[in-house]
Design a protein around this nucleic acid. Sequence first.
DNA 1: CTGAAAGCGCTTACAG
DNA 2: CTGAAAGCGCTTACAG
Lengths: 346, 346
Amino acid sequence: MKKKVTLKQIARELDVSISTVSKSLRNSPEISEDTRQKVQAFAKLYNYKPNNIALSLKNRKTKTIAIIIPEIVHHFFATVISGIEQVANENGYNVIVCLSNESFDKEVINMEMLANGSIDGFILSLSKETQFKADFHHITEVINQGMPVVMFDRVTNEILCDKVIIDDKTAAYDAVQSLINQGRKKIALVTTVDYVSVGKLRTDGYTKALLDNDIPFDENLIVKIEDIDNSEKQISDLLSGGEIDAVFAVNELFAVISVKIATKLGLNIPTDLSVVAFTDGIISRYSSPTITTVSQNGIKMGQKAAKMLIDRIESESEEEEHYKTEVIETHLIERETTISQKNATL
Amino acid sequence: MKKKVTLKQIARELDVSISTVSKSLRNSPEISEDTRQKVQAFAKLYNYKPNNIALSLKNRKTKTIAIIIPEIVHHFFATVISGIEQVANENGYNVIVCLSNESFDKEVINMEMLANGSIDGFILSLSKETQFKADFHHITEVINQGMPVVMFDRVTNEILCDKVIIDDKTAAYDAVQSLINQGRKKIALVTTVDYVSVGKLRTDGYTKALLDNDIPFDENLIVKIEDIDNSEKQISDLLSGGEIDAVFAVNELFAVISVKIATKLGLNIPTDLSVVAFTDGIISRYSSPTITTVSQNGIKMGQKAAKMLIDRIESESEEEEHYKTEVIETHLIERETTISQKNATL
DNA sequence: CTGAAAGCGCTTACAG
DNA sequence: CTGAAAGCGCTTACAG
């Protein structure tokens, strides 16, 4: 078991100073060709690699970025991480992943712990509880310390920083419009509770689409799901009414559950009932029938977020004010839960 | 924008030495009650938090562990991360995630980069390419430096270290046996290429089950899939033969594709064709029909791996030889692709 | 061309 | 009870 070798040890072995070793390895022109080669040969032999922690302390930057997300067992977030990781790696950064598990406290603890020198910047998506409490002091604090933060997907207007989002409202509007174009009139909405920012925006888009098409808004066609485990009954009640001819769901889980229940109720999809959902993931692709969804390119969101963060980290200027919000485009991926028009977008 | 405050600054403000500040904050009995309180009050006011990097350098441990996995956009790996993260957090560790993307080079680069002081230990699952090349020098090297390594799922016998696995062979055997118990005789196998360790083991289990039940082994009933994108034709050819009455797939993706193709071919599931697959994930639960699978508890594997790693990190003794291999139990989750016996295990 | 010194932010054995 | 010194592993401005 040969332990990692340090500059000090090399210096001692070669009977030169630590400075000389350091400079030799960094190819400083100060050092004679002779000693440089000797040191480099020795270092190579012992497989010397500089200690990252020491470098971090010296340089006051760690070349690592932290991602704080509510959940990882969730295809969308996994794709975002994947995108971040790719760009981070290309730029020599490592990635620390922390899960808030939708808990405010855990989000705060994680951020505070990492803000103390461990990382160069944050990429984060708010936990449900944080959105519910609308308490963002931990984020403000970190930003005030001069640490760059990029938020994505679940963001808030109360924090000024770089952001990467999709246009949830417009995308929802377009999705609902596509149902209307197919002649659907009784369009139900299966959504989250209001404090989830994206759920709210998607609900707004739904409402606006109805309005613009002179379709009466009906409270009774809306189900707000707080807890996924109890959702079946709510959706079942909704669909049993019999009136409904389309469902717009704010995520694919709500959609697939709706599809299952509808099928059980003897409804034919898409003849009796069309279904469109947010966020194209694994489930939509493999459920039967496959589900028409709004794509939300997590890879691209992650890449963009990482790029923005690294730019911010590496830019000398501290011009705090030029925060940007990037909007990633979405599109509808038509599958079997809407009338098969065979003009699938992808 | 108030920057992070350091001991040095506090010392200067309070006109005491850095040592005194440090000791005061750590409640050293050496310090007088008076100064202790004064320093603590001041530190609190300025929200002092020690710099993690400095502590890491001083203590020669970073309280972070690295996970190296082939892919994150894969439900199983996401659950493992989730399990690791939970245990890590409970023990005050952070988690760095690196993706090899099934590439040998990226696996090596990531490990070498992190091994230089950034982390206290590794949890890893081999990339396909690494398994194919059977080149594990990067892992041996890290272990030789005294850094603990825990491997999970995709492991190798060529490396001595702690491991967390399931008994792939037995689980496969049991799954196939369950098909045989239902009276299935022509059981096809949809598997990976042989160099993927778990694919190989599952294939072995399949073969043994047939043997033990005096069912002739038939080369033609086996499809080895190298590239998922080209799998449809291979599986289609397999199922078109018409002879087959069951499919055993080594992962749920292969299973759901088989189910789709079978349905398209007009086969009734499970009457004409039973399907059992490895690794219970999102797809199996939401496909229609839902798929009978061997559960592989990723959360538990992750928790166990993290526990083993942290124990190893924190144990003083360097008894390298007592490496353990933990086997996580699996069980069959019966769903709609096997004859509905209503005795679902879960 | 080489090396001693200072410093990144901290801790702790030791002196006073 | 307080503080100077050494040290974790490195880099770099400065002296010689």
